[in-house]
Nucleic acid binder design. Structure first.
Lengths: 247, 247
DNA sequence: CTGTTGTTCGTACGCTGTACCAACAACGCT
DNA sequence: AGCGTTGTTGGTACAGCGTACGAACAACAG
């Protein structure tokens, strides 16, 4: 019988506090978050967080059992941003699901390291709230529970997959790549075209500067608009399959 | 002007070999892959790979500049598995795209650590072949290049997002979680329901053993079938938007 | 058989997460 | 007010990581 203080789950283990400690779990998590946002997830180390807080490294281990637990806290802090204020919650399932998906996208794109780095943690309180909101979006439909589950899964999959790629794409655009690397890449691509193995790719890129071709292929839309169009495709296809009213 | 041996890109840098070296890049990459498959990506260290090969650790650095380059090789080795034999390539765009997506799914699920761990590497030869196959799938359609790009992106996003979740789900089912952790999680969930903040979630899970409820929510379908149904939704929605013939 | 140089790998450095334990300080009790 | 308990802090140490450096070995040309 696990008492409150030796629980295996951080959510059921009481935060220390009978004699005012210097820090809080929230404080530690948000410090970790801001390091990750400004310098990337790799820069988040226990020593780094501690020195940011003006504490000894091992002090953190009084608030958290392992670094993984700290990551769980980071995860939950991010999920908090995903929640939609109750008074902004749309009534129609399509609008509600769109709002949830777009907000999730916005948040994950603000923390592009998150999807790759956060182990999919045991569901914390804010992840639960997010799930509740997702169910609420479909409450007015008369879908069976399994159909709701399937629909939410498809939307979630698309959102996460899109962020995974879009975040990386944005990073690639932002970071200054050595001219030398680009040149080598172009050279490599051309040598591959020369094998004749890549007719379609060559038709698109062959002989041209990829930095000029790429934007044209992508079109004038912003990343976010491209995401929204993809989302519309997904929701449209789902509505058709599940016989849901599109509007 | 980068000569063949000091190129910034591993693909354009010649593999050593004027005096027969002990190993090949392929050998090293496949050793790394098998370690990752059997013990997880975290177990892949330079020392570990080397000892598996009976070599000194630093020997690997003769074949590869950094561990990241080795990861690029792993990535490309995985992409090789994704390629569809030419004689199995379906003619109709829907079937072709489905085949590419399903094969990608199968491979990524065999290497569940891959999506999370492999930096999205600069496109290697097998990634190029995969992209060529994706374009080939849409060659018979008369879509504009930008539309092809958008469609492929949506499908890719869904596939990757689904693998991200499904792989983790499978891992969760496989690994033996401490009874203690499950108990703590159930306890935590119940205490959250008690706040009244989670009516929809509670209706689904409240008071029941989640290990019994979950399979029922998911339904009788296999992971793979659930993926295929989601894919059909996505392709259906895309076909509608892009005015493509579904069959 | 020798000189060149491609190939191997031992040592060392700074980084990581964290186990262990000594020291400090806040509070309840007398 | 002073003492004892114990919640809280954090120093030291250890095994592991990626990899820079450079010495040693060995394959081949002459």
């Amino acid at each position: 019988m696990a008492s409150a203080d030796d629980s295996a789950l951080i959510w059921t283990r009481a935060e220390p506090g009978t004699r005012r400690p210097k820090f809080t779990r929230d404080q530690i998590a948000s410090t970790a978050l801001s390091i990750a946002d400004t310098e990337g997830f790799a820069a988040v180390s226990m020593r780094r967080i501690a020195s940011e807080l003006g504490a000894g490294t091992m002090t953190l281990y009084y608030y958290v059992r392992t670094k993984d637990e700290l990551i769980v806290l980071m995860d939950d802090a991010i999920m908090r941003e995903v929640l939609i204020p109750a008074d902004e919650f749309p009534a129609h399932w399509y609008d509600a699901l769109t709002a949830v998906a777009e907000r999730t996208w916005d948040v994950l794109m603000r923390h592009p390291w998150a999807l790759r780095s956060l182990q999919n943690a045991p569901t914390g309180p804010n992840a639960m709230r997010h799930f509740e909101q997702s169910l609420a979006a479909l409450a007015a439909t008369r879908l069976a529970a399994t159909a709701k589950f399937a629909l939410l899964a498809v939307v979630d999959d698309y959102v996460h997959g899109n962020v995974l790629r879009a975040a990386e794409f944005r990073a690639a655009k932002t970071s200054t790549v050595d001219e030398e690397v680009i040149e080598a890449a172009v050279h490599f691509a051309e040598s591959q075209y020369a094998t004749g193995e890549f007719p379609h790719t060559q038709e698109l890129f062959g002989g041209k500067d990829p930095r000029e071709v790429f934007p044209r292929l992508i079109g004038a839309e912003s990343e976010r608009d491209r995401f929204r169009h993809g989302l519309a495709m997904v929701l449209g296809g789902a509505a058709r399959r599940l016989d849901l009213p599109l509007r």
